[in-house]
């Protein structure tokens, strides 16, 4: 299955953020969206999620325009993992994950036993089953991010779209989220995420999409696209490339 945008002009009613954007994501692959602040990453993400209509062009999901899906149909195919946040009310972690089952019930239904089993499995999968009864407002930022990942998994989608999944996480949890993204891909999900750290793209993404001031400046395989020159052009700043002598692996440092 493929989620794709064709000739997209993205933005809000009073402001065009980007134009001429073509992007495609297949199941079983990871695409990272890189670019400076204000470059249109989040706007493109919301457009591909169907939360923001494109001002021109079309988003398609499995050979049908995304706009022709009902919100329920769409939620069964695409899950959204927002940046970890606080909720107004102290729902339990289990309730938050169960909310991922919403699109599988009808307008008046509540999650049933089967839904609870699926939610429990998702909690188990991310190692946070012990937090089940804890209020979502009382757990750490890393735990909240894992709970949101569990919710996306409970949604049983084909695609998972994450908005800066590593922002505000500590070093250890950043690595954890990168590993989980790889695992989600291995299970056949198509994963799209935005990040401020090119190393995270190197680590977890098959392909990268570089977005600057609403324009695509490069797209392709991570290994071929992500180099010092591209990143310097992308961020308008100098970038250092360091190589580990033993493993030969490389990483970028802001200069």
């Amino acid at each position: 299955m493929i989620l794709s945008g064709h000739g997209l002009t993205i933005g809000y009613s009073d402001r065009v953020v980007g134009s001429g954007l073509d992007v495609a994501l297949a199941t079983g692959e990871v695409l990272a969206l890189l670019g400076p602040n204000g470059g249109g990453k989040t706007t493109l993400l919301k457009t591909l999620l169907g939360l923001l209509p494109p001002q021109a062009g079309e988003v398609r999901l499995a050979d049908r325009p995304l706009a022709s899906y009902s919100s329920r149909e769409r939620a069964r195919l695409i899950a959204y993992v927002p940046q970890s946040h606080f909720t107004t009310f102290a729902f339990t972690v289990e309730a938050m994950v169960l909310m991922g089952r919403t699109a599988h019930g009808n307008l008046f239904s509540r999650p049933n036993t089967a839904d609870r089993t699926i939610a429990a499995r998702a909690l188990e999968r991310f190692g946070i089953a012990h937090l089940r009864e804890r209020p979502y407002t009382m757990i750490s930022g890393g735990e909240r991010q894992l709970a949101l990942l569990a919710r996306a998994l409970a949604q049983e989608p084909q695609f998972i779209v994450l908005d800066e999944p590593t922002a505000s996480l500590d070093f250890g949890n950043q690595g954890r989220v990168m590993r989980e993204i790889q695992a989600l891909k291995a299970e056949g999900h198509g994963v799209l995420f935005t990040t401020h750290d090119p190393n995270h793209a190197m680590r977890a993404a098959d392909r990268v999409y570089l977005l600057r001031q609403g324009t695509r400046i490069a797209e392709g395989d991570t290994d071929t696209i992500l180099g010092r020159g591209e990143l310097e052009a992308l961020y308008g700043a100098s970038v250092e490339l360091i190589t580990d002598r033993d493993s030969g692996r490389t990483a970028f440092l802001p200069g």
Partner: peptide, 11 residues
């Protein structure tokens, strides 16, 4: 009671 875009993404 979640943010609006999140609720919509949940269907």
């Amino acid at each position: 009671s979640l943010p609006d875009e999140e609720a919509r993404a949940l269907g």
